[in-house]
């Protein structure tokens, strides 16, 4: 793991620090490359603002919200058509790193 990824992961474990530091640090710190699993999300979650879709957008959102949603899908507490089956493939650590990376992506890129 690269140093920046390790750093991000450490921050990810401390949600409050993340929220505070996000806007300051992430543009520099977020690796250009998506962490494991993150690049598959955009198969369903549109990146382009031009796409009309009922599937919610997940870029540029609070990482804590993404983490909470993924954990609730995984436990089944939040009902879903497909996210439960997908979230079960990710550990807490993986979800945190993905959430931080997603948060650092511009919401209306491309």
């Amino acid at each position: 793991m690269s140093g920046s990824a390790r750093l991000l992961e450490k921050w990810a474990r401390a949600p409050r620090a993340v929220t505070l530091l996000l806007s300051l640090v992430l543009p520099v710190m977020a690796p250009a490359e998506p962490p494991a699993g993150a690049s598959s999300c955009s198969g369903c979650h549109a990146v382009s603002a031009r796409v009309e879709t009922p599937i919610p957008r997940i870029l540029g959102r609070q990482p804590t919200d993404i983490v909470a949603a993924m954990q609730a899908f995984r436990s089944g507490e939040r009902p879903s058509t497909v996210m439960g089956r997908i979230a079960k493939g990710f550990s807490d650590d993986e979800i945190r790193v993905i959430a931080i990376w997603l948060a650092a992506q511009p919401a209306e890129a491309r």
Binding site: S42, G43, C44, A46, S48, R50, V51, T81
Partner: peptide, 23 residues
């Protein structure tokens, strides 16, 4: 209604993935 929701997600998936692939 669950099946209908998945049918609508299927179409949304197609729009999303073709936009990502071809712009």
């Amino acid at each position: 209604d669950f099946r209908a929701l998945e049918a609508s997600y299927a179409e949304a998936w197609f729009r999303t993935i073709t936009a990502e692939t071809f712009g």
